[in-house]
């Protein structure tokens, strides 16, 4: 603010000092926050106002903390800003009983200061929410793409839903890590639940399979449905010598044979399905 209002400011400082307990109690009621939490902010605010440089760094730090914890606990941003404005109300109740021009001027100054701080909490709250949303998205990615051991030495990754590049990459990295962790030598990537495979997803799959090979593990792709097979072939993607199986069960049987668990060849009761419109 351009004009300094020493007398008014001093009145507010005095009010804040004389009525600390009463003000914090009132504040806590409107702000729905614990008195302890607020006392800390209150004291930081008092020393900031009293200081010559009016350094609000500490106050802002505490308010940012308040915003973040509230964002986590699911408060709304308005709730959080209102918590700050609550002190203004509490101070106003006192000022009302002592409405000298100095006090009023001081209150206006204080009120603008609190508005600024309120907006600041609003902003930090929004930033905190965004961060939480990003974190949750990442967690969801992790959760929605499990790598499971279906047999000793055989891992399976059932992919379900739309594969965007971020998700494919997460799954593929998880699979490679799981191969290291478990020492498994076989993996089945099942794409029965995937609605479309484009060049990027195919490339992620191919790279992972090559990387797995370098680590001494063999991957099988299962569950390529007719419409996906059509699109892959039309696009011109070649899976080379990568083994593909119709179903997860076929892929498991293949892996079991390869690892020597199953020794008997299954009766070849293959039914040819023409990949016409499914």
């Amino acid at each position: 603010m351009s004009v300094d209002l020493p007398a008014g400011r001093r009145r507010i400082e005095q009010l804040l000092a004389d009525h600390q307990d009463q003000l914090i109690k009132r504040w806590a009621q409107t702000a729905k926050a614990s008195a302890d939490e607020l006392t800390e902010i209150y004291e930081a605010l008092r020393s900031a106002i009293a200081g010559d440089d009016r350094d609000l760094t500490d106050v802002r730090g505490l308010l940012a903390e308040l915003s973040r914890s509230r964002a986590r606990r699911g408060f709304t941003p308005s709730d959080t800003a209102r918590a700050v404005f609550g002190l203004k109300e509490a101070v106003y109740e006192l000022v009302e009983t002592d409405a000298t021009p100095d006090t009023m001027r001081g209150f206006i100054w204080f009120s603008l200061l609190m508005d600024d701080l309120g907006l600041f909490t609003f902003e930090t709250f929004a930033t905190a929410r965004e961060k939480i949303i990003i974190e949750q998205t990442e967690q969801l990615l992790e959760l929605s793409t499990p790598v499971v051991a279906i047999w000793e030495g055989i891992l399976a990754v059932p992919l379900v839903g739309t594969l965007d590049s971020a998700r494919t990459q997460v799954v593929m990295e998880k699979l490679l890590q799981a191969l290291v962790d478990t020492g498994a030598e076989h993996a089945v990537i099942d794409i029965t639940g995937v609605p479309a495979v484009d060049t990027q997803v195919a490339q992620h799959l191919l790279k992972t399979i090559v990387a797995a090979r370098l680590m001494g593990a063999e991957c099988v792709i299962s569950g390529i449905r007719p419409q996906i097979a059509h699109s892959i072939v039309t696009l011109g993607i070649e899976f080379g010598d990568i083994v593909t199986k119709a179903t997860l069960a076929d892929a498991l049987a293949h892996a079991l044979r390869r690892s020597g668990v199953l020794t008997t060849e299954r009766k070849a009761t293959r039914i040819a399905i023409r990949a016409e419109d499914a």
Binding site: T162, P195, A196, V197, D198, T199, Q200, P226, Q227, I228, H230, S231, T234, L235, E276, D277, A278
Partner: peptide, 27 residues
């Protein structure tokens, strides 16, 4: 991709053709 799929279904495209146009849209 999801929207194109919806429109393709509405236009009566077969599952194979839906998937083809969705894949092209993705590219």
């Amino acid at each position: 991709r999801q929207y194109v799929r919806g429109v393709a279904v509405e236009m009566g495209l077969s599952l194979v053709d839906q998937t083809k146009v969705v894949t092209a849209a993705s590219e």
